[in-house]
């Protein structure tokens, strides 16, 4: 559905997106993962045909967004990072008018709007203005708005940033439903759990480049161990203790606030630490996540 080859966006000397290649297949949930400033949103805007690329090739459903902007935008649903709902309009009017922008008929939209309000569970809020909605409701309305033109691809830029855990789960549930109905999802996020929950396949981006590509499970298998031990000795002592732990597990990362030890068997490593005579203030054995993949690839954590 989407094919990018050496896709590049430069602003002066700065390469926001630096010759990246990727493909998105019909019906999959494709993720762009990376910290702020990695070039995710820039890539999204180029796919969304609201930003002209500086170089390389980009095809969306076989069309070039630089020359077929309106047609491509008619195929897409866009959920931007910052809500840009129409605050002067009521909830149902937001959906209705957005559909009108695509040239859809009033008759079609009357039914469509009610269907979408039901889908995002905003029946009670149908006739209120946008300002009266909570953050999670606004985001759901933005998703409904993105669906009004029955898009084949739904683009979500940081869909759950700033939402509380409950609102995030409601949102994820709706996105799963969409995926089941065959809508292709393209999602940017800097949340690892979100990427793991939603994405079939993802690319890890940093500084405009792709660092790795694959399914969440593949990435964890290729770039991390099965389990991770997190130990804290207090911020002053972490660096002091770290050299004594060398040789435990497969790899050690020392962060300012904690030490991570990658291993097949975490409990075993934790036991070895205590037998060496070190007593961590807190310890945690967990499964490897994409956070660890990112740390391995870039030497940095995702959310600073």
């Amino acid at each position: 559905m989407i094919v990018a080859k050496a896709l590049t966006k430069t602003y002066g000397d700065f390469k926001a997106v630096d010759a990246i290649d990727f493909k998105v297949k019909r019906g999959e949930a494709f993720g762009l993962l990376g910290p702020n400033g990695a070039g995710k949103s820039t890539t999204m805007r180029m796919i969304g045909a609201t930003l002209q690329r500086s170089g390389g090739d980009l095809q969306i459903l076989g069309k070039d967004p630089n020359t077929h902007g309106p047609e491509i935008r008619a195929h897409l649903g866009v959920v931007p990072q910052q809500d840009n709902l129409d605050r002067e309009l009521k909830v149902w009017e937001n959906l209705f008018i957005y559909g009108r922008y695509f040239g859809l008929s009033r008759k079609f939209l009357k039914a469509k709007v009610e269907e979408l309000i039901g889908f995002v569970k905003l029946e009670d809020k149908r006739d209120v203005k946008v300002d009266a909605l909570s953050g999670g409701m606004k985001r759901r309305l933005t998703i409904a708005r993105g669906l009004v033109n029955e898009p084949e691809i739904l683009m979500l830029d940081e869909p759950t940033t700033g939402l509380d855990p409950q609102a995030r789960h409601v949102l994820w549930d709706r996105l799963f439903r969409l995926k089941e109905q065959g809508v292709t999802l393209v999602i940017t996020t800097h949340y690892m759990d979100e990427a793991e929950q939603l994405c079939d396949r993802l690319i890890v981006m940093d500084k405009g480049k792709i660092m790795a590509e694959g399914s969440p499970a593949e990435l964890i298998r290729d770039y991390s161990s099965r389990e991770v031990v997190e130990v804290r000795f207090g911020s002053a002592k972490n660096a002091e203790v770290a050299p004594h732990l060398e040789g435990l597990g497969e790899r050690i990362e020392v962060l300012p606030d904690r030490i991570l030890i990658y291993a097949e068997n975490g409990e075993q490593v934790l036991h070895q630490i205590t037998t060496k005579g070190f007593e961590p203030l807190t310890s945690l054995v967990r499964r490897s996540s994409l956070e660890d993949v990112f740390l391995r690839l870039t030497g940095r954590t995702l959310v600073d």
Binding site: G48, T50, P70, E71, R73, A74, P80, N84, D86, N149
Partner: peptide
């Protein structure tokens, strides 16, 4: 920004 991400020009 919202209008221009539809097929409007």
């Amino acid at each position: 920004e919202g209008m221009m991400s539809t097929s409007l020009g």
